[in-house]
Amino acid sequence: MKYSTWSQEAAFAVLATLREEKGAVLMALQALQKEFGYVHQEDVALVANFFNNSRADVHGVLTFYHDLLTEPPTENQISVCVAEACQAVGSRALEKDLKAKFGKEVHDGYCFGNCALGPSAMVNGALLGRASVDSIAKARK
């Protein structure tokens, strides 16, 4: 995925689209991450000022949700489901093999709603069923 280069002006432009939204802090952090790849440290104060919240509140939201990243994402994003339905078809072993092969690209996921065709993985936003190390390797960029 290609992300924009962060600047204060560019971040403001993202926030401006959410000016009319009620309770927009989480949406704002999601929108910033979508635009710039992750939430920059400077974003916390920007969001707090823009929506008249405290920085502590914004930091609290940022650190609560698993989706929100505070570091640049790896070029490939592999999320492998490690919840029960996928465990039943070998996702624990798959997760281990994937982490050995692709390291930091691999994250634990908790259910993509593909529980009859597991193990499931999401590779750069595309869902894979009956996933294997090979099929995931093919789906990588």
Partner: peptide, 25 residues
């Protein structure tokens, strides 16, 4: 539509309301 952010507990209805309000779930 409000999109969640990867939190299981936000499926609990009051945590969901907090999340829709943009707060910690």
């Amino acid at each position: 539509i409000r999109v969640g952010a990867g939190s299981y507990v936000c499926g609990e209805e009051t945590a969901m309301l907090e999340s829709i309000e943009g707060k910690r779930g």
